[in-house]
Design a protein around this nucleic acid. Structure first.
Length: 561
RNA sequence: UGGGGCGUAGCCAAGUGGUAAGGCAACGGGUUUUGAUCCCGUGAUUCCCAGGUUCGAAUCCUGGCGCCCCAGCCA
């Protein structure tokens, strides 16, 4: 029953197809695959596909392969292969022993190409790239047959063997499937299936100088691995007839089927490997793992929990219509997980000195604070309280507007887990900037309690000045300033110039010196933060993973901190 | 003007002839030692449009309209 209800929750048209294929006996075992090309880092759009493919395998008792689609050595690198494996594991999915490479099948693929030649279904074409384009026709005009289309089989066999042995320079000739130059589907107009590339391959080194194209490699690799459901994105929809044509014309060991779904688009972000690569190459971000990047490496460094990304993937669903998911959905998933799991701490990002004038000069109290008030089992910690503190600059206003219930002259607020304090004096510099606050505290309110039942609207976070740990904190906003970057043509102009703000004078609660890598905590009232990879024991560097929801800034009129 | 897809609330998304699920966002209200969390409440007389079939249509039929993808020796 519970299995059924979870199936219902995750239900989508592809899972329905899988379920039908299983119940109709159409297939006995489910096998899916995630087939990245190692030419860039994985992003959250890939996460959607990963969760879909691995999720189906998990829920239907099947398996999911990780297969690198490494058929073009001019673009692919070992670095990407390693990064992709790291990212999938981090996401929490496991290919077990099923790690494959399309390049594992080069010999078999070559034999099948020969088979196509022998059956009169492929030929070596000497036309140049320009000529091939010209002969291909247009969307509305049919193509024309290449003059080399009817070469004798023996000649094709001989030429193809010479292509393999390196007799020709790149571009000299290609192997083409012989299908239909007049097809309305351009993919069927004698698609190229092998081309000459004299580039060292990350895995096969210099063994090959001809490489199969995606169309020729993908379906056959699926067949070799006995993939039952080959799930890909919509742009491959009109490749399906070609996918099927190869399967039908080759003695492959199984009969896989391709199914297409809509790729993920996210507001305020770009999920195009080409553009992400450009951002990295042009140093518009610090790298593939820049915390503003939608890459899994970036999200990880930013402090997004993998569970949140998986939850997001299941919430957005899978369908065939083009859609732009609101990034707020992702943020909700992140906050949801972090709210449950992140320990609470206090940190002042923009410090304002507060002196408690009636607090004994050398006294220090250790006050107890809950690590997570919503989760008793997370325990408590202790925080030092002393005469000199820091509070957030935004938490004081000399002339507060209505509904501002933080600190102001002659006002009383609660210091969380500390005491109630009242502001008695405001110290300013020559420019009139507030530099320090003088306050008094009520000794009867230790721990922030009000034994007399008095109501205090404002509760502020704070940190003891002499005990505070200094840190740099990096605040991030969307990398792009508009919800659909690039719609108006120039994507670079849509880059948000203030997507990174670095705060250098942040004051953290002492126990934060021990914040471990990969641990995300909540700074009360400020948001979720994690240690950055740049952090060292001498110089702490934290990232703001995401802020808390903030209805106060909304009432102020959209001003953000 | 060729071929392949898709149109259900601001954004996702169920629904497959029996009278429009759910989530996000937004907006009210309650609780609160985080203006957070949590809780409660508010949305489609209508499913791109127009006809038709039917007792009954988002679902079937016909005709429009709109959007996306395809002319790499990329994937």
């Amino acid at each position: 029953m519970s299995e059924q209800s979870s199936d219902t929750e995750n239900r989508n048209f592809i899972r329905d197809i899988v379920a039908d294929d299983l119940s109709s006996g159409h297939c006995k075992e489910i096998a899916t695959r995630f087939p990245p090309e190692p030419n860039g880092y994985l992003h959250i759009g890939h996460a959607k596909s990963i969760c879909l493919n691995f999720g189906i395998a998990q829920d239907f008792g099947g398996r999911c392969h990780l297969r690198f689609d490494d058929t073009n050595p001019t673009r692919e690198e070992q670095e990407y292969i390693d990064a992709i494996k790291t990212d999938i594991r981090w996401l929490g999915l496991d290919w077990g022993k099923h790690l494959y490479y399309a390049s594992d099948y080069f010999e078999q693929l070559y034999d099948w190409a020969v088979h196509l030649i022998q059956t009169g279904n492929a030929y070596v074409d000497d036309l140049t790239a320009d000529e091939i384009r010209d002969y291909r026709g247009t969307l509305t005009d049919p193509g024309r047959n290449s003059p080399y289309r009817d070469r004798p089989i023996e000649e094709n066999l001989h030429l193809f063997a010479r292509m393999r042995s390196g007799d020709f320079p790149e571009g000299r000739c290609v192997l083409r499937a012989k299908i239909d130059m007049a097809s309305g589907n351009i993919n069927l107009r004698d698609p190229i299936i092998y081309r000459i590339i004299h580039t060292k391959h990350p895995r096969t080194a210099s063994k090959w100088c001809i490489y199969p194209t995606y169309d020729f490699a993908h379906g056959q690799s699926d067949a070799i691995e006995h993939i039952s459901h080959s799930i890909c994105t919509l742009e491959f929809e009109d490749h399906r007839p070609l996918y099927d044509w190869f399967i039908e014309n080759l003695p492959v060991p199984s009969r896989p089927h391709q199914h297409e779904f809509a790729r993920l688009n996210l507001s305020y972000t770009v999920l195009s490997k080409r553009i992400l690569t450009q951002l990295v190459r042009e140093n518009r971000v610090s790298g593939w793992d820049d915390p503003r990047m939608p890459t899994l490496a970036g999200l990880r460094r930013r402090g997004f929990p993998p569970e949140a990304i998986r939850d997001f993937a299941s919430r957005i669903g899978v369908a065939k219509r083009d859609a732009v998911v609101d990034v707020a959905m992702l943020e909700h998933c992140v906050r949801d997980i972090l709210n449950q799991n992140a320990d609470r701490r206090m940190a002042v990002l923009r410090p304002l000195k507060v002196i408690i004038e009636n607090y004994p000069d050398s006294q220090v109290e250790e006050l107890e604070a809950a690590n997570n008030p919503g989760n008793e089992s997370s325990g408590t910690r202790t925080i030092p309280f002393s005469r000199e503190l820091y509070i957030e600059q935004d938490d004081f206003m000399e002339a507060p507007p209505k509904k501002f219930f933080r600190l102001a002259p002659d006002r009383e607020v609660r210091l969380r887990y500390g005491y109630l304090i009242t502001c008695t004096n405001v110290i300013k510099d020559v420019n009139g900037e507030v530099t320090e606050l003088r306050c008094t505290y009520d000794p009867a309110t230790r721990g922030g309690k009000t034994p007399d039942g008095r109501k205090v609207k404002g509760t502020l976070h704070w940190v003891s000045a002499s005990h505070a740990v200094d840190a740099e904190v990096r605040l991030y906003e969307y990398l792009f300033a508009v919800s659909e970057p690039g719609v108006d043509g120039n994507l670079i102009q849509d880059i948000n110039p203030t997507s990174l703000e670095v705060l250098n004078n942040c004051k953290l609660e002492p126990c934060l010196v021990n914040l471990s890598k990969g641990q995300t905590v909540q700074f009360e009232r400020m948001g979720y933060f994690c240690s950055d990879t740049d952090s060292t024991p001498e110089r702490l560097v934290l990232n703001r993973t995401i802020g808390l929801r903030d209805s106060w800034s909304k009432t102020l009129g959209g001003k953000t901190g």
